[in-house]
Design a protein around this nucleic acid. Structure first.
Lengths: 190, 190
DNA sequence: ATAGACCTGTGACAAACGTCACATAATTAC
DNA sequence: GTAATTATGTGACGTTTGTCACAGGTCTAT
C-alpha cells in the first residue's frame, strides 16, 4: 500500500485523513501469470494500480490476439471507455507475470469522492495520466514508421523492450512478428 | 452557450447555481479559418468546447503536417498532456472552418471546481470522454489495415468523411494521400 | 473573367510489409 | 531429464504502400 500512497501524493495533495477515507474503495489482490484482471464482455468497474509485475490489454479477433497496451509497476491499468460509460468492454487485461494489484472499486471510489474533493481530484488525475498515455501512443502511428516506433520505445520506454517478448510486442507496434524481428536485426547491424 | 449547457448536463447533474459558478471560467470566441486555437510551444491552458465549425490537431515535423485528430460540434478539443502537466505542447490546433468555441480557462475552472464538486466531476468527465476517444482511435491502428480503418470511419464517424477533405484525412489514417485515394477507388468499384 | 492556390486522381517504380514455411533456440511441464 | 510447447530467426514471394511526377478539376480572390 505504501507504493500507492506515494503514487497518489505525486498526483494530488492527500492528507492522512483522505487516505483513510479512500481505504474502503481499495482491495489488494494477487494474480497468477495469464490470469485475467478484466475479461471481454464484463463491465470494467475497477482501476488496477499495478504494485508488482506487469500486465497487458488486448483485443481478440477471430482468435488473433492484438495487444493494445502494457502496464507496469506504478501505473494504472483499466479500460477507460467501459469504466466511464458502464458498457461492456471488448478488451481483455491479463497478467503477464505473477502480479500484485491494488484495485479501486468504482462505486466505493465515487462514494469516497463525495466526502473529499481531493479524492475526486485524484480520480481526475488518474484518468488524465491514462489519457496522456493513450495520446502518446496513438500519435506514434501517425508520425512514425514501424522502425521509428521501435526506436521511440527504446529511448522513451526501455522497460517495455526489456520485459516484453518480441512476439508480444509486435502487435502492439502494429507489425507482424517477422517484420519486427527483421527491423531489430537491421538496427543491431547498423 | 445553450448548446454547452445541454452538453454539460449529459455528463453530470448540473444545477443552475453550478452553471452560474462556472461562468467566470468561460469565454466565447470566434476563430477564422486556419486560425490557431493552440500553437506549438505554448502551454495548453484551455479546454475548447466546439460550438460551431470544426478544427484539427496536428504535429508539424520538418514542414510536414501530420493530423492527429478532428474535433466537431459538441466535442472538447485540447491537448490533454500539456493541459494536465503544464508543459509546453508540441501540437497545434487550428480551425478548419470559421469556428466558434467556448473556452474553459484552466485556472478559473479549477477555482470554480473548488466551490462545487459537480464542476470537479464535470472536469473529470470531459477528460474521460477525451480519453475514450483517444483509446478508440489508438486501437484502430493495431487492429486494422488502412482500408479497414477507412471503413471504420465510414460506419462509426461518417461526419469526418463528409467534412474533412481526403488530403487532410490521409495523415490522420496514417497513410499517404495517394494511397488513400486508391483505397477509396478500390472500395467504390467493389 | 482570370490567375493562382488547393484538391484529387493516376502511372511508374522502389521500398516496406505480410504470409507461409521451416529451422533452431529457449522455456515449461511432467 | 525428456518431451512438448513457446519464442525467435530467416528465406521466398506476393501485396501493399510511399514517393515522384504530372494532369485535370474546383474553389477563391480580385
Amino acid at each position: 500500500m505504501n507504493n500507492l500512497l506515494k503514487y497518489i501524493r505525486t498526483l494530488t495533495n492527500f492528507s492522512d485523513e483522505n487516505w483513510e477515507l479512500l481505504q474502503p474503495a481499495l482491495e489488494k489482490r494477487a494474480f497468477k501469470k495469464n490470469e485475467f484482471l478484466l475479461k471481454q464482455g464484463q463491465v470494467c468497474n475497477s482501476l488496477f494500480y499495478i504494485d508488482n509485475g506487469y500486465c497487458k490489454s488486448y483485443y481478440e479477433i477471430d482468435g488473433i490476439v492484438k495487444n493494445t497496451g502494457f502496464f507496469f509497476e506504478n501505473e494504472i491499468a483499466t479500460n477507460i471507455s467501459s469504466f466511464g460509460s458502464g458498457q461492456k468492454t471488448e478488451f481483455n487485461i491479463a497478467a503477464c507475470e505473477p502480479l500484485t494489484a491494488i484495485i479501486f472499486d468504482k462505486d466505493r471510489l465515487f462514494q469516497a469522492a463525495k466526502q473529499a474533493i481531493e479524492i475526486e481530484t485524484l480520480g481526475r488525475n488518474c484518468i488524465r495520466l491514462f489519457a496522456s498515455k493513450q495520446e502518446e501512443f496513438s500519435v506514434l502511428f501517425k508520425l512514425y514508421s514501424a522502425q521509428e516506433r521501435l526506436q521511440y520505445l527504446e529511448t522513451m520506454h526501455p522497460e517495455i523492450l526489456q520485459r516484453v517478448p518480441l512476439s508480444q510486442l509486435a502487435s502492439f507496434l502494429g507489425v507482424s512478428r517477422e517484420t519486427l524481428s527483421r527491423i531489430r536485426k537491421r538496427r543491431t547491424l547498423s
